[in-house]
Amino acid sequence: MSILKLENVCFSYGTKTVLEGVSYEFEKGKMYAVVGKSGAGKTTLLSVLSGLASPNRGTITYNGEDIRKLDKYRFRSKYIGVIFQSFNLLTKFTALENVELSMDIAGVKGRTKDKREQAMALLSSVGLEEDEANRRILKLSGGQQQRVAIARALSYNPDVILADEPTGNLDGETQKEIMEIFRELAEQGKCVILVSHSPEVARACDEIYELKRTKNERSRKAAV
């Protein structure tokens, strides 16, 4: 059974329609690649999936339940791990603190010390050293920030991982390591949805979903 299901989802920013009648099913234990040209609405799709944006029409179900009926915050903090394209990390906090905070928000049980160790382990698994983990976000490079964002999304062991260009700032070597992590998660039964322009990443996935520009978007482009 699919864990996330889109049925005829439409979304527009004001008059600008970005998603038009999107229907798709995401299953557990699989890795998906969402591809499409820049501005096609990939980020928007992830926003809709994570409950940050509500579709104008159509329904999204999580484990068969309409996500509008779920507690949005609980849904975002526990069941879905989002790696934002622009990271959205707390810049005043250290990498470790960012990870710890998301664990706290998700309500991960355990002693503070244990959770810290867990967070540290997670950060080192995405390739951050201890001294980088204890550094404030603004003092980390783009790639390091991206890895913190990945660690944060994984920290509370969500069922679904939504990653917006998770390897966009990473070198080939690191990208491979990260992809391995995602693969492992999929094998553990998670649903991993990646947005990527990289054919390499797309190839590593089980399914590829190509997002086309909406009609009015295309006609506007054509008119130019």
């Binding site: 915050y73 707390l90 998301s102």
Partner: peptide
């Protein structure tokens, strides 16, 4: 921005 981040990652 901080408020945005916190609510985006599920803080009420």
């Amino acid at each position: 921005y901080e408020v945005g981040v916190l609510t985006a990652i599920g803080m009420k």
